[in-house]
Write a protein that binds this DNA or RNA. Structure first.
Lengths: 243, 243
DNA sequence: CGACGCATTGATTGGATTCAACTAAGGTGG
DNA sequence: CCACCTTAGTTGAATCCAATCAATGCGTCG
């Protein structure tokens, strides 16, 4: 099992002891597999477990009345799917598996107990939640004020950086199980226009993409094309302790 | 001082005892006034206090290289400005006062202590943070997949609902200290187009707006025009306790 | 009164959507 | 093994929503 991945994100922001890790590990009641395109959690549902990504990619999404879909977040190993269910009862959006993935289920009540006793773990989890929020804010900026070229550059830059943080990047090559349609839903564009935009980026030799793979050719140029600043991800270990 | 407002939001999601309220109140080291258009917290800053809105409106925003601004959240009384600073050291965006407003400052360390001792308060605060996140997600949907007409309808609907939750709506009339330029930055549009869109909404008799006031004429029609579903705000008191 | 901020309106441009067709790759079943 | 179908990607032409450029009205304030 790819358990180490579960801690990569938490450990990026806090020092965990062996006991912390064990305590966290014990929360996991089971790990189940979800096929691509199937919902991990449905909109409106009230699941009894909190879900944590172990393998594969998923997306936080909302279907609109007019049939269009907006992806609000891409989830990779180490990300919580629905941490907010510890305090909120009902999903206000769905989570769909973008690739075949495995998901750990965590008992809500057990998690609740840990949140009330283990301050270090709690802080790590809260921290990771706040990083997720920062990512969501970046998403607002992306769809709100950037053009197609910048949007695609930014999202690919971000996913590269996030995958790198959990050790899933090898020599600037990332497994990217996203179709152009999914990219469109994540950037607020249409598949057709994503296609044209990717063609431009390809022409500019910023990356190679296809067959579920992304190879960054010029990370600096890509970052500046997308206005990407990793600051909101690298929130590690500021002010080690007392001030 | 308009202290009661501070609890309106927290109490909407959790039952607080008199002691909880007192404990929270004690955290407030002082309340300062900020003039409209001045930053409450600057991008990149590492403030020593957490800020809480007491009066007036503010906005979470980011300036882009090209000079455009994206507002990621509107903040009203009861909202935290920078709760994430309890765990994250540095602002990745700025907070600006949209109207003259007063802001409570909370000592970070004292808050930290409370977070580790008072589970009920902590949960209430976490809850409020998760509501903020849900609001941000709605913002992504708004700028990502809705047209101008829907965007404006949605944001005004949301602000009406949020203001109502903290008791600041009287007979469907809300104080709305937003210029069309601010609305533009919050919806990812241009001031000119906001103007035309408002003209349309006015013509459709959905609301009257101007002079810092918003009067909703047909809340049902406005909500359906904006695809607004209050579900993500009304997260109150589900599953009272055990299951 | 002039300067400024904000709202409004017109004319024009442009980025992205829409509609539509077509290619390529993979899987399935007769 | 090849017809058949599905899914993903690509390309072209026409259209449209919103941006841009530009000018004006209007109230407030120094």
């Amino acid at each position: 099992m790819a358990e180490p991945l579960l801690f990569k994100k938490l450990e990026a922001v806090a020092d965990l002891t062996a006991e912390d890790r064990a305590e966290f590990q014990n929360l996991i009641s089971d790990v189940r597999t979800v096929e691509a395109k199937r919902d991990i959690v449905r909109d409106g549902e009230r699941p009894e477990h909190v879900h944590l990504m172990v393998e594969g990619w998923a997306a936080r999404y909302k279907m609109l009345e007019n049939g269009s879909r907006q992806i609000m977040a891409l989830l990779i190993p180490g990300d919580f799917c629905d941490l907010h269910l510890t305090v909120i009862g009902r999903m206000d959006h769905g989570i769909v598996a973008l690739s075949k993935c495995s998901v750990a289920r965590i008992d809500s009540e057990a998690l609740d107990r840990v949140l009330e006793t283990n301050a270090r773990l709690t802080k790590a989890i809260l921290w990771s939640a706040l990083v997720d929020e920062a990512i969501t804010r970046q998403c607002v900026i992306n769809v709100g004020r950037r053009d197609a070229y910048q949007r695609v550059a930014h999202i690919l830059c971000e996913m590269h950086a996030r995958m790198k943080m959990v050790g899933l990047v090898d020599d600037n090559v990332v497994a990217l199980p996203l179709t152009q349609e999914m990219l469109a839903d994540a950037t607020g564009l249409t598949p057709v226009h994503i296609n044209r935009t990717i063609a431009l980026l390809r022409k500019d030799r910023l990356f190679e993409i296809g067959n579920g793979m992304l190879k960054i050719l010029d990370i600096g140029a890509l970052a500046s094309a997308g206005g990407f600043d990793a600051g909101y991800l690298q929130l590690q270990r500021r002010a080690p302790r007392g001030k």
